[in-house]
């Protein structure tokens, strides 16, 4: 069921296996591809392996004693699975981590500037780029002098996204942008993602638990379960799929069931590949 990445895939992940601490097998052969200029959603429950997949691509795994033991990762037709994170950023692949990870003791503007670290751009260029980011996130302009640690969750998510944007990426790996945010803010963030995708032609691979929102904005979706891709398809198809509707969107076709039955039903009806 897992799709073999097509040759024109912008970012291609081929059958990767990830092991933490030499013993814990987390990804058991995940394949996916992100076409240029598209938004691809990586869906699944807690512990399904979404974050691990993103970190495997951005090579942040090593800092957590994780390792890609099998498979390959390609970006623009080039093997990137052995590249250090800073080299990947230089190539245009930037990750926005789960939980934002802003530099708490730096101001919002300083946070944005660190995003341009790899580029070594001149002062005028940086200023221009800052203005562009502020164009997308007017709220950040007002808060530019505030310490990032004291800004709201939504502002931190915007800062993290803006910081990634400062690297002038062509591909952003966005991990759980909706985490801990009010529905309205989530909507706002996803609007901006769509906007960036269209205006700056940035491709996105986003991991998200909020299946509902993610499928509305994404072009394509992959569903992970237990370290495996169990299903993939166009976002609209997935949103219409009966199993996805039941398990991930909480919409059941028939009458109300008790939770006990659902669990049983779910166990029986495993859609393993």
């Amino acid at each position: 069921m897992s799709a073999v990445p097509k040759p024109e895939a912008y970012l291609g992940v081929n059958n990767i296996e990830v092991i933490y601490d030499h013993v814990i097998l987390v990804l058991k052969g995940v394949s996916l591809s992100v076409p240029e200029g598209k938004i691809v959603a990586l869906l699944g429950a807690n512990g399904a392996g979404k974050t691990t997949t993103l970190k495997a691509i951005s090579n942040l795994l090593r800092a957590e004693r994780g390792e890609v033991t099998k498979g390959t990762i390609e970006f623009r037709g080039r093997r990137v699975d052995r590249l250090s994170p800073d080299k990947l950023v230089r190539l245009g692949v930037v990750q926005v981590m789960e939980g934002r990870h802003c530099f708490a003791h730096l101001t919002v503007e300083e946070n944005l500037l660190t995003g341009a670290y790899t580029r070594g751009a001149g002062r005028a260029q940086l200023k221009q780029d800052l203005e562009k980011v502020y164009g997308y996130f007017p709220q950040l302009k007002e808060r530019r002098g505030a310490l990032a640690g004291y800004t709201s969750g939504g502002e931190q998510q915007m800062t993290a996204l803006g910081r990634a944007l400062m690297a002038r990426p062509s591909m952003i790996l966005l991990d759980e942008p909706s985490m801990g945010l009010a529905p309205q803010i989530v909507e706002e963030i996803f609007e901006i993602v769509k906007n960036l995708n269209q205006k700056e032609s940035v491709s996105f691979l986003l991991a998200e638990q909020n299946t509902h929102v993610a499928l509305r904005y994404a072009d394509h979706g992959y569903i992970l379960e237990n370290g495996r891709v169990v299903m993939d398809g166009a976002a609209a198809e997935l949103a219409a799929n009966e199993d996805v509707r039941e398990f991930y969107l909480g919409i059941s076709s028939g009458a109300r069931r008790s939770f006990k039955d659902v669990k049983h039903y779910r166990r029986r009806k495993r859609w393993l590949a």
Binding site: S58, L60, A63, P85, D86, L88, V89, R90, V94, Q95, V96, M97, H101, C102, F103, A104, H105, L106, E110, L113, T114, G115, Y117, T118, R163, A164, A167
Partner: peptide
């Protein structure tokens, strides 16, 4: 700035390419 960023959050510093 990069030094201060690293002092704040190693992981995030790695993620932005430091």
């Amino acid at each position: 700035r990069a030094l201060r960023a690293v002092a704040d959050d190693h992981q995030a510093a790695l993620a932005v390419g430091i």
